[in-house]
Amino acid sequence: MIETNKLSKRFGDFIATNEITFEVDKGEIFGFLGANGAGKTTAMRMLCGLSTPSSGTATIAGFDIYKQTEQIKKNIGYMSQKFSLYEDLTVTENIRFFGGIYGLSNQQLKTKSQQLIHDLGLEKEAKKLVGALPLGWKQKLSFSIAVLHEPKIVFLDEPTGGVDPITRRQFWNLIYDAADRGVTVFVTTHYMDEAEYCNRISIMVDGRIKALDTPRNLKNSFHAASMDEVFYALARGAKRSE
């Protein structure tokens, strides 16, 4: 689903992302880890078509990252670090707007928004402004909207920042549901407990991918009891931080 080969991004002398190479399979939940400033967001922005790579190649869902950005855009979903729904629109209006700009028909919008509101248990809040919802609900809604148009891949940039563990668990249930439907999930996170939920993870340090495997294999090869220890072992040598 995602294939990159020596993908790099330079800003002047600074190499934000340095020759990263990896593959992500269909239906996989791929965790993209790294400390602040390691280059995660830059890499993700390139994969989403928000930023042009300086060198290297990549394909997303079989489409070339340089030439076929329009096709890529139609086949991916994106949830940004900042909570990104319109606070002054209602739940239903947000669903219909974002579904609409992805070209869903009125009929699809109607059934899908009803389904979504039902699944999230938001029947009573459907006509309320999104700004009035608690953060956890906003994030769940934001994710559901990002996968509303049934993308092949969904990119999540630190989706669970600032919410409690229970809500985070519920959020991950939504991610599993999406993966079961065949959606490939590419997620960045700081939370090491979340890393354990992923099928495979990569850890970035100073713009390079330092490790890439399943959480279990990584723990074995680093003789670590938890992902926390693996992460510290790798990140200790980092030269950049915010």
Partner: peptide, 13 residues
């Protein structure tokens, strides 16, 4: 500021 612009730019719009 709110980050919705990013979402719009990622969309096919």
């Amino acid at each position: 500021e709110t980050g919705t612009m990013e979402v719009l730019l990622v969309s096919p719009f």
